[in-house]
Design a binder for these strands. Structure first.
Lengths: 156, 156
DNA sequence: AGATTTATCTTCTCTGAAGAAGAGAATATG
DNA sequence: CATATTCTCTTCTTCAGAGAAGATAAATCT
């Protein structure tokens, strides 16, 4: 902990970083006239590809009812499409078919700034950073799943 | 961009990382029986120290009405306290005076996992990572402020 | 083969949070 | 001393999420 003098406030620095990321996520959703969850769901669909409402609900942390209405909103806005699943006629596949027009413009400042920061690192340093991003993504995903299953059962 | 073959999907990897961070933030708030905004505001107060409702509203991206009720909720839960400002009797200072009891327990899995990841890096590599965290935090904060001021004025 | 159970999605109603507009109190400025 | 500005709080309306209940299709069992 106290090996490097500049890292005594590492935890604080890290939390500030997470706070900034979350604030920006919220602000960009609002700039697209979307709720935070809506933009988040759209992001998941684009990253992971088409999926059923059930899976989308699991990934967003929503129950089935709100998930249907979330898809309704996205479909009405023209960002996703409902397609019947070919193998199972109970299922529906939610496909991303578009993005908010303002999204690129909204994300531009952050992309530009982060790009400029990353451009200042050497190839080896970038390897370290992206290695961390990859591992941390899995870590947070697992931690979030743990929280969802533990809901209310915090006492052993 | 295409210098390193393994980094062609850097953007994708990075977005997955941000998604995981946001999902975890949302899940942990729910695990504390708080709204995402409430936990976020509490986090800001702990990181930055006491501030007026106006500043808290600006930082959370809320307008004045919801900010008052946000503080009401936090005050009723015993997490913050309203103190009259000594220099200006219009103002109120919001002070953090506690945290949700479950917070440490909720954050434990993520902290442990991220700690384990960070423990695997050398001192030089950690310097790179925390240098990035620091710069990126400022970048996202600036980008978020830009979005808030540009709201609706996307066309030049 | 027919009936039952399971799974998936949707609909409905209720609670809670965010936005908009306005009021009241205190400070700063002319 | 009077006016304008700043800051917070209050009220009303709108929208998103939780939960229970219902409908349709697939899988399983007898």
């Amino acid at each position: 902990m106290s090996t490097t003098p500049g890292r005594s406030d590492a935890g604080l620095l890290y939390r500030r970083y997470l706070s900034a990321v979350m604030l920006h996520g919220h602000a960009s959703a609002k700039a697209c006239d979307l709720g935070a969850t809506d933009l988040y769901a759209l992001n998941i669909l684009e990253l992971t590809g088409p999926m059923t409402p059930g899976e989308l609900g699991t990934r967003t942390g929503l129950t089935t009812g709100p998930t249907t209405r979330l898809i309704d909103r996205l479909e009405q806005a023209g960002y996703v499409r409902r397609v019947p699943a070919p193998d199972d006629r109970r299922k529906v596949i939610v496909e991303p078919i578009g993005k908010p027009a303002e999204l690129d413009q909204v994300m531009a400042p952050a992309r530009q700034k982060v790009g400029a920061i990353l451009a200042g690192y050497s190839a080896e340093q970038l390897d370290v950073l992206f290695d961390y991003f990859d591992r941390a993504a899995h870590a947070y995903q697992e931690a979030a799943e743990l929280l969802r299953s533990d809901s209310g059962a915090v006492c052993p």
